[in-house]
Design a protein around this nucleic acid. Structure first.
Length: 114
DNA sequence: GTTTTGACGTAGC
DNA sequence: CGCTACGCCAAAA
């Protein structure tokens, strides 16, 4: 089996995140699971931390509770919520309302709500 | 090469 | 129902 390049891990994460439809959100665990590294949800978050230099809509990624756990990494705690609300997502108490409905699973990759 | 950390997740109390 | 503890994995120091 070909030795997989760890650096590719970051790239995969970005590839998934940038494909999150506008007005939708997903979780770190879902992305990690999609990448085949179910237990590396933390690593996904870490990858998004350094994704600031990339064009990554990291604000669409929250934890499995739908909570904006990473809002503090946007420079200002209000930026993440502001971006989400800008896409039609209601955020209350650092928590995505109707999260279950807005959740976008990368495994589907295509929106099934047609 | 070992140690620490980190935007998580699940289980236990 | 909320907090704590542990696990998990990859990157950076």
């Amino acid at each position: 089996m070909k030795t997989y390049v760890p650096k590719d891990f970051y790239h995969r994460i970005y590839e998934v995140v940038i494909q999150i439809p506008e007005g939708r959100v997903t979780s770190y665990g879902a992305i990690a699971k999609y990448l085949g590294a179910k237990g590396s949800a933390r690593t996904v978050g870490y990858a998004l931390t350094i994704s600031k230099k990339e064009n990554i809509p990291a604000h669409r990624v929250v934890n499995r509770n739908g909570m904006l756990s990473g809002k503090h990494h946007f420079g200002s705690p209000d930026i993440m919520q502001r971006l989400l609300e800008s896409e039609g997502i209601t955020v209350k108490n650092d928590q995505v309302m109707n999260f279950k409905n807005l959740f976008w699973d990368p495994s589907h990759f295509l929106d099934l709500s047609h």
